[in-house]
Protein backbone atom coordinates (compact mmCIF):
# COMPACT_ATOMS: atom_id res chain seq x y z
CA UNK A 1 0.00 0.00 0.00
CA UNK A 2 1.21 3.51 -0.84
CA UNK A 3 1.99 5.90 2.02
CA UNK A 4 -0.74 8.55 2.50
CA UNK A 5 -0.30 11.61 0.27
CA UNK A 6 1.13 14.76 1.82
CA UNK A 7 -1.40 16.90 -0.07
CA UNK A 8 -4.87 15.53 -0.71
CA UNK A 9 -7.34 17.64 -2.69
CA UNK A 10 -10.96 16.67 -3.28
CA UNK A 11 -13.64 18.50 -5.24
CA UNK A 12 -11.78 21.82 -5.13
CA UNK A 13 -13.52 24.71 -6.92
CA UNK A 14 -12.76 28.39 -7.11
CA UNK A 15 -14.65 31.02 -9.05
CA UNK A 16 -14.22 34.75 -9.55
CA UNK A 17 -17.70 36.03 -10.27
CA UNK A 18 -18.90 34.09 -13.29
CA UNK A 19 -15.48 32.74 -14.18
CA UNK A 20 -14.61 29.31 -12.91
CA UNK A 21 -10.85 29.23 -12.28
CA UNK A 22 -10.60 25.80 -10.69
CA UNK A 23 -13.29 23.24 -11.34
CA UNK A 24 -13.85 20.21 -9.16
CA UNK A 25 -10.18 19.32 -8.80
CA UNK A 26 -9.09 16.00 -7.28
CA UNK A 27 -5.36 15.55 -6.75
CA UNK A 28 -3.02 13.59 -4.49
CA UNK A 29 0.59 14.65 -4.12
CA UNK A 30 3.05 12.26 -2.52
CA UNK A 31 5.70 13.35 -0.04
CA UNK A 32 8.94 14.23 -1.81
CA UNK A 33 7.27 14.51 -5.17
CA UNK A 34 8.44 17.22 -7.59
CA UNK A 35 5.29 18.26 -9.38
CA UNK A 36 5.44 20.64 -12.33
CA UNK A 37 2.25 22.45 -13.25
CA UNK A 38 2.05 23.65 -16.85
CA UNK A 39 -0.69 25.20 -18.92
CA UNK A 40 -1.77 28.32 -20.75
CA UNK A 41 -1.97 31.59 -18.84
CA UNK A 42 -5.29 32.07 -17.11
CA UNK A 43 -5.71 28.32 -16.78
CA UNK A 44 -5.84 28.44 -12.97
CA UNK A 45 -2.27 27.30 -12.18
CA UNK A 46 -1.43 30.29 -10.03
CA UNK A 47 -4.82 30.27 -8.31
CA UNK A 48 -4.19 26.61 -7.48
CA UNK A 49 -0.99 27.58 -5.61
CA UNK A 50 -2.65 30.56 -3.95
CA UNK A 51 -5.44 28.38 -2.61
CA UNK A 52 -2.88 25.94 -1.21
CA UNK A 53 -1.08 28.87 0.47
CA UNK A 54 -4.43 30.09 1.94
CA UNK A 55 -4.12 33.36 0.02
CA UNK A 56 -7.47 32.53 -1.57
CA UNK A 57 -10.38 30.74 0.01
CA UNK A 58 -11.86 27.97 -2.14
CA UNK A 59 -15.58 28.01 -2.86
CA UNK A 60 -15.92 24.30 -2.24
CA UNK A 61 -13.85 21.17 -1.76
CA UNK A 62 -11.24 20.14 0.77
CA UNK A 63 -7.47 20.41 1.01
CA UNK A 64 -5.63 18.20 3.45
CA UNK A 65 -1.96 18.62 4.33
CA UNK A 66 -0.58 15.53 6.06
CA UNK A 67 -4.14 14.41 6.75
CA UNK A 68 -5.22 17.68 8.33
CA UNK A 69 -7.86 19.80 6.66
CA UNK A 70 -6.68 23.32 5.89
CA UNK A 71 -9.98 25.19 6.11
CA UNK A 72 -11.85 22.94 8.56
CA UNK A 73 -11.03 21.73 12.04
CA UNK A 74 -12.49 19.07 14.28
CA UNK A 75 -14.20 20.11 17.46
CA UNK A 76 -16.23 17.65 19.54
CA UNK A 77 -16.25 15.27 16.61
CA UNK A 78 -17.79 17.82 14.25
CA UNK A 79 -16.04 19.70 11.44
CA UNK A 80 -16.23 23.46 11.85
CA UNK A 81 -14.52 26.33 9.98
CA UNK A 82 -10.86 26.61 10.94
CA UNK A 83 -9.90 29.23 13.49
CA UNK A 84 -6.74 31.33 12.97
CA UNK A 85 -4.66 29.09 15.24
CA UNK A 86 -5.57 26.00 13.24
CA UNK A 87 -4.93 27.77 9.95
CA UNK A 88 -1.52 28.90 11.15
CA UNK A 89 -0.56 25.44 12.37
CA UNK A 90 -1.40 23.75 9.10
CA UNK A 91 -0.07 26.62 7.00
CA UNK A 92 3.31 26.24 8.68
CA UNK A 93 3.83 23.13 6.54
CA UNK A 94 3.59 25.13 3.32
CA UNK A 95 5.91 27.78 1.91
CA UNK A 96 5.82 29.84 -1.24
CA UNK A 97 8.12 31.73 -3.60
CA UNK A 98 6.34 34.45 -5.58
CA UNK A 99 6.64 35.57 -9.16
CA UNK A 100 7.36 39.15 -8.05
CA UNK A 101 9.59 38.16 -5.09
CA UNK A 102 7.62 40.23 -2.56
CA UNK A 103 10.75 40.85 -0.53
CA UNK A 104 10.29 43.25 2.37
CA UNK A 105 11.92 46.46 1.08
CA UNK A 106 12.63 47.88 4.54
CA UNK A 107 14.74 44.90 5.62
CA UNK A 108 18.19 43.70 4.57
CA UNK A 109 18.54 40.40 2.76
CA UNK A 110 19.52 38.69 6.00
CA UNK A 111 16.62 40.17 7.94
CA UNK A 112 14.22 39.12 5.22
CA UNK A 113 15.41 35.58 5.87
CA UNK A 114 15.50 35.73 9.68
CA UNK A 115 12.34 37.75 10.44
CA UNK A 116 9.82 34.92 10.32
CA UNK A 117 12.06 32.26 11.96
CA UNK A 118 12.52 34.61 14.92
CA UNK A 119 8.92 35.76 15.28
CA UNK A 120 7.01 32.72 14.05
CA UNK A 121 9.24 29.75 14.86
CA UNK A 122 10.63 31.39 18.00
CA UNK A 123 14.31 30.92 17.12
CA UNK A 124 16.85 33.04 18.94
CA UNK A 125 18.40 35.84 16.92
CA UNK A 126 21.73 34.02 16.86
CA UNK A 127 20.19 30.74 15.68
CA UNK A 128 18.12 32.50 13.05
CA UNK A 129 21.11 34.51 11.83
CA UNK A 130 23.24 31.39 11.59
CA UNK A 131 20.59 29.60 9.57
CA UNK A 132 20.03 32.73 7.48
CA UNK A 133 23.71 33.08 6.61
CA UNK A 134 23.89 29.41 5.66
CA UNK A 135 20.86 29.67 3.41
CA UNK A 136 22.02 32.87 1.74
CA UNK A 137 25.40 31.21 1.16
CA UNK A 138 23.60 28.25 -0.36
CA UNK A 139 21.90 30.50 -2.89
CA UNK A 140 25.24 32.22 -3.58
CA UNK A 141 24.57 35.50 -1.79
CA UNK A 142 26.91 35.31 1.19
CA UNK A 143 28.29 38.72 0.20
CA UNK A 144 24.84 40.38 0.09
CA UNK A 145 23.69 39.83 3.67
CA UNK A 146 23.38 43.52 4.44
CA UNK A 147 22.05 44.67 1.09
CA UNK A 148 18.55 46.03 0.83
CA UNK A 149 16.27 44.62 -1.89
CA UNK A 150 16.53 47.74 -4.05
CA UNK A 151 20.30 47.19 -4.24
CA UNK A 152 19.89 43.69 -5.68
CA UNK A 153 19.24 42.48 -9.22
CA UNK A 154 16.04 40.59 -9.99
CA UNK A 155 17.83 37.26 -9.91
CA UNK A 156 19.44 38.08 -6.58
CA UNK A 157 16.10 39.19 -5.17
CA UNK A 158 14.49 35.94 -6.18
CA UNK A 159 17.33 33.94 -4.61
CA UNK A 160 16.83 35.83 -1.34
CA UNK A 161 13.11 35.05 -1.58
CA UNK A 162 13.92 31.36 -2.02
CA UNK A 163 16.23 31.43 1.01
CA UNK A 164 13.51 33.22 3.00
CA UNK A 165 10.97 30.52 2.17
CA UNK A 166 13.45 27.72 2.90
CA UNK A 167 14.25 29.20 6.32
CA UNK A 168 10.76 28.26 7.49
CA UNK A 169 11.49 24.60 6.65
CA UNK A 170 8.14 23.89 5.03
CA UNK A 171 7.25 20.36 3.95
CA UNK A 172 5.62 21.55 0.76
CA UNK A 173 7.12 24.42 -1.23
CA UNK A 174 5.20 26.27 -3.89
CA UNK A 175 7.05 28.05 -6.71
CA UNK A 176 4.86 30.44 -8.67
CA UNK A 177 6.44 31.32 -12.04
CA UNK A 178 9.57 32.31 -10.18
CA UNK A 179 11.51 33.27 -13.31
CA UNK A 180 8.76 35.11 -15.22
CA UNK A 181 9.57 38.54 -13.85
CA UNK A 182 13.29 38.21 -14.56
CA UNK A 183 15.37 39.54 -17.41
CA UNK A 184 16.38 36.59 -19.64
CA UNK A 185 20.04 36.67 -18.61
CA UNK A 186 19.10 36.31 -14.94
CA UNK A 187 16.85 33.27 -15.32
CA UNK A 188 19.76 30.81 -15.24
CA UNK A 189 21.00 31.67 -11.76
CA UNK A 190 17.55 31.12 -10.24
CA UNK A 191 17.02 27.86 -12.09
CA UNK A 192 20.40 26.69 -10.85
CA UNK A 193 19.31 27.22 -7.26
CA UNK A 194 16.03 25.36 -7.88
CA UNK A 195 17.90 22.41 -9.39
CA UNK A 196 20.16 22.26 -6.40
CA UNK A 197 17.21 22.31 -3.98
CA UNK A 198 15.46 19.60 -5.96
CA UNK A 199 18.59 17.45 -5.75
CA UNK A 200 19.40 18.01 -2.13
CA UNK A 201 16.13 18.07 -0.18
CA UNK A 202 13.30 15.73 0.61
CA UNK A 203 10.88 18.63 0.36
CA UNK A 204 7.77 18.28 -1.77
CA UNK A 205 7.94 20.84 -4.57
CA UNK A 206 5.07 22.18 -6.66
CA UNK A 207 6.46 24.25 -9.50
CA UNK A 208 4.25 26.37 -11.74
CA UNK A 209 6.35 27.25 -14.76
CA UNK A 210 6.20 28.10 -18.40
CA UNK A 211 9.70 26.75 -19.06
CA UNK A 212 9.02 23.30 -20.49
CA UNK A 213 12.65 22.19 -20.61
CA UNK A 214 13.02 23.05 -16.96
CA UNK A 215 9.77 21.29 -16.00
CA UNK A 216 10.95 18.19 -17.77
CA UNK A 217 14.31 18.29 -16.05
CA UNK A 218 13.22 18.99 -12.49
CA UNK A 219 9.88 17.19 -12.17
CA UNK A 220 9.03 13.55 -11.67
CA UNK A 221 5.39 14.28 -12.40
CA UNK A 222 3.74 16.88 -14.63
CA UNK A 223 0.13 18.02 -14.71
CA UNK A 224 -1.36 20.04 -17.52
CA UNK A 225 -3.89 22.63 -16.37
CA UNK A 226 -6.44 24.00 -18.78
CA UNK A 227 -9.53 26.07 -18.03
CA UNK A 228 -9.52 25.12 -14.37
CA UNK A 229 -9.15 21.39 -14.94
CA UNK A 230 -6.29 18.92 -14.96
CA UNK A 231 -6.36 17.55 -18.50
CA UNK A 232 -3.33 15.34 -18.21
CA UNK A 233 -1.28 13.93 -15.36
CA UNK A 234 1.80 11.93 -16.29
CA UNK A 235 5.57 11.52 -15.86
CA UNK A 236 7.52 14.18 -17.75
CA UNK A 237 8.93 11.91 -20.45
CA UNK A 238 5.46 10.75 -21.34
CA UNK A 239 3.71 14.12 -21.32
CA UNK A 240 6.40 15.88 -23.33
CA UNK A 241 7.07 13.14 -25.88
CA UNK A 242 3.67 11.59 -26.19
CA UNK A 243 0.88 13.77 -24.79
CA UNK A 244 -2.46 11.99 -24.74
CA UNK A 245 -4.89 14.88 -24.52
CA UNK A 246 -5.47 17.00 -27.64
CA UNK A 247 -5.33 20.26 -25.59
CA UNK A 248 -1.91 19.25 -24.23
CA UNK A 249 -0.64 18.60 -27.74
CA UNK A 250 -1.99 21.93 -28.92
CA UNK A 251 -0.42 23.78 -25.98
CA UNK A 252 2.98 22.13 -26.32
CA UNK A 253 3.05 22.83 -30.02
CA UNK A 254 2.23 26.50 -29.43
CA UNK A 255 4.90 26.78 -26.73
CA UNK A 256 7.53 25.16 -28.95
CA UNK A 257 6.71 27.53 -31.76
CA UNK A 258 7.35 30.52 -29.59
CA UNK A 259 10.33 29.06 -27.73
Amino acid sequence: MNPPPIVRIRGLSKRYGDVSVIEDLDLDIAAGEHLAVIGPSGSGKTTFLRVLMTLERPDSGTIEIEGEDLWLMKRNGALIPANPAHLRRVRAKVGMVFQHFNLFPHMTALRNVTEAPIHVLGLSRAQAAQRGVELLAKVGLEDKLDSYPHQLSGGQKQRVAIARALAMQPKVMLFDEVTSALDPELVGEVLGVLRQIARETEMTMIVVTHLMEFAREIANRVIFFDRGRVREDAPPDEIFTNPSHPRTREFLRAVQLTA
Binding site: R88, V94, M96, F98, N102, F104, V120, R164, A165
Partner: peptide, 11 residues
Protein backbone atom coordinates in the same frame (compact mmCIF):
# COMPACT_ATOMS: atom_id res chain seq x y z
CA UNK B 1 2.18 41.12 -2.30
CA UNK B 2 3.80 42.25 0.94
CA UNK B 3 0.87 40.96 2.97
CA UNK B 4 0.77 37.76 0.94
CA UNK B 5 4.45 37.14 1.58
CA UNK B 6 3.84 37.72 5.28
CA UNK B 7 0.96 35.24 5.24
CA UNK B 8 3.12 32.70 3.41
CA UNK B 9 5.71 33.10 6.18
CA UNK B 10 2.92 32.48 8.70
CA UNK B 11 3.22 35.81 10.52
Amino acid sequence: GQIEAAIALNL
